[in-house]
Write a protein that binds this DNA or RNA. Sequence first.
DNA 1: CAGTATCCCAAGCGATACTG
DNA 2: CAGTATCGCTTGGGATACTG
Lengths: 155, 155
Amino acid sequence: MNWADLDSGHCSIARAADIVGDRWTLLILRDVSRGIRRFDELSAHLGIARNILSARLGALVANGVLERMPYAEEGRRPHQEYVMTPRGAELLPVLLALIAWGDRHLSEEPPVRAVHNGCGHEVRLVPTCTAGHALTGGGEVQIVPGPGARRVDRE
Amino acid sequence: MNWADLDSGHCSIARAADIVGDRWTLLILRDVSRGIRRFDELSAHLGIARNILSARLGALVANGVLERMPYAEEGRRPHQEYVMTPRGAELLPVLLALIAWGDRHLSEEPPVRAVHNGCGHEVRLVPTCTAGHALTGGGEVQIVPGPGARRVDRE
DNA sequence: CAGTATCCCAAGCGATACTG
DNA sequence: CAGTATCGCTTGGGATACTG
């Protein structure tokens, strides 16, 4: 099989990157997942322009990653919040992987940590082979085409 | 502690996204990790403009993610290859996480798979708490500031 | 409070031509 | 083969003002 014939654009990485692969989206998801959920809070914390934030939130809602919900707590004015959908919550490993790499290679001390809600201990991503082997992480993994791979049309 | 006071820009996610968070870089790393390592091969497979590819490769080398190596196999003209550094190899979990999410939510059938070199079985990322709890993945993880977090200067 | 509406700039990108 | 050099377009993004 010729690797070079596999359509690069239909790869899951490419598709996922189309949704979360811009300068702000991952940071929005980080903030939402940590409890910053209102438009003005996000705007202030991220330092993002309001129109851009609006566009990003709209796209994330359209892609089913976030959901926009009206909140009405008693004694306060009602307001909107953006919350993770299940699909959005499943993006967490992406954030964890970036945190792990950034902590290890770009900082002396970790600026953020990921912790288990229950016990408060740190959470790591352990690459595990379905045959049960734990992978230590040095060139043991290879990315190969799956059943959904497409070939590029060529003559 | 006031979450909103933590400097969003010094987060590891933000720093990592500065390096890998553009439209092409993750795809370049995917290709390099799968054995597409020469300039023209990458250019052809990705469909990226040559000047952009040049810029991206240069940045990745500058950031210590890739290394540029001259290759001289006998019988063939010598050429250049880009190979993963150890630092680059540690980005693999990011790719795995994106693949997992994209496969699950953006495709019917997985266009790419990650497999263990030794046994050929699929590799998954299992979020694991250092206390030993395996996490099933529904809202059990929280992102919190670490020791290296900085506060924003405000009056 | 939660956005839209404008305006403008800069970066990213694609296409193409050229070079050691 | 492995890039660099230009050019021009298009998008992302910042700043600001405005609205229900």
